[in-house]
């Protein structure tokens, strides 16, 4: 009983309830579509927040991993006839391996140099996807077969809603556990001061690499699921602005707040759908929202909100 009331279990329970009840109020497939995109972005952002919020390392290139996962699934299932699940797992493993190889040199960089390093990595991935047209279809993208496991085909918004919702719940549970583990404490030490952490014996490099790999794998899984759900992907999944979108969701929701990332993903996925109606103003408003939230709520939405509530109750 006590465990149920602990903040993280409570949060998880609340998330599960929201996911379970949401279909009752979603009027049609279009809303399911938006909800699925929210879920997919949230999966990626929860992973990215471990890196940015907890380990204090910026990445402006995670859309690259998302894109690689998407294309791994598209190519392996579409062009080579692999089973969907195998393609997803192999894609995620390959992306994890790539992240592991890149982690050492890239995570040596700090601040803006790290930003540029990860940005460069993402841009190169996106250029490769754009240019290897024989394989990927180039800028116009390629179709992806439906997701199939043991003869059962996942098709339609409602089916995907439950798949994505379930995956998000598991991802959140894993992330929360990771944070409460000794690894999480080591990460926070790195965020505080890397040198200080090193001095007290934290193997900073190993932990940074671990989180980098975890976040890349989650991005890849998100990409694979997106590819199958959407049925069509383009290299824009891997482009710079998509990376920026992920980072903005994390920071908007609140760094070092797992549920904040889910909130951030929800807001920034739903917002453009509303703005599409006044499309002349879409870009302008999106930019203004990004700027003003960062200026007025530098800690992000959820932490600022929590602080406000705490102050009220005192």
């Amino acid at each position: 009983m006590r465990a149920l009331l602990a903040p993280r279990t409570g949060g998880l329970l609340a998330l599960a309830i929201v996911i379970a009840l949401l279909p009752a109020v979603l009027p049609n497939n279009f809303y399911f579509n938006v909800a699925i995109l929210v879920g997919l972005n949230a999966i990626v952002c929860v992973g990215l927040n471990l890196l940015i919020g907890y380990a204090g390392q910026i990445s402006l290139g995670h859309a690259g991993f998302f894109g690689l996962g998407a294309y791994a699934s598209a190519l392996l299932t579409g062009s080579y006839g692999w089973p969907s699940l195998a393609a997803l797992v192999v894609g995620a493993a390959a992306v994890g391996a790539l992240a592991f190889l890149l982690a050492r040199p890239i995570l040596k960089l700090k601040g803006h140099y790290l930003a540029m390093g990860t940005l460069g990595m993402g841009v190169i991935i996106s250029i490769v996807l754009n240019q290897e047209a024989g394989l990927t279809g180039g800028p116009d993208g390629m179709p992806v077969p439906a997701f199939e496991v043991w003869g059962w085909t996942a098709y339609g918004e409602r089916t995907w809603y439950w798949i994505v919702g379930g995956t998000l719940l598991v991802t959140t549970w894993l992330a929360l556990n990771l944070i409460e583990s000794p690894i999480g404490r080591a990460l926070r030490a790195i965020h505080g001061s890397e040198i200080a952490a090193e001095v007290i014996g934290v193997k900073t490099e190993r932990f940074k690499t671990l989180v980098f790999v975890i976040s890349a794998v989650l991005a890849s899984v998100g990409g694979s699921m997106f590819a199958h759900y959407s049925g069509f992907i383009t290299p824009s999944e891997a482009e710079f602005f998509h990376s920026i979108a992920f980072v903005t969701m994390v920071v908007l929701g609140g760094m070092a707040s797992i549920f904040g990332s889910i909130l951030g993903a929800a807001i920034l996925t739903v917002l453009p759908q509303f703005l599409a109606v006044l499309h002349d103003y879409e870009t302008l408003v999106l930019g203004a929202v990004m700027m003003s939230v960062m200026i007025f709520l530098p800690k992000g939405l959820l932490p600022s909100l929590a602080e406000l509530l705490r102050r009220r109750s005192l």
């Binding site: 918004e157 069509f232 599409a276």
Partner: peptide
């Protein structure tokens, strides 16, 4: 001129 947006909008035209 983005294929991804085109797909989103077509889904919207059909479903919504």
């Amino acid at each position: 001129t983005k294929a991804k947006e085109a797909l989103t909008f077509v889904k919207r035209l059909i479903d919504q």
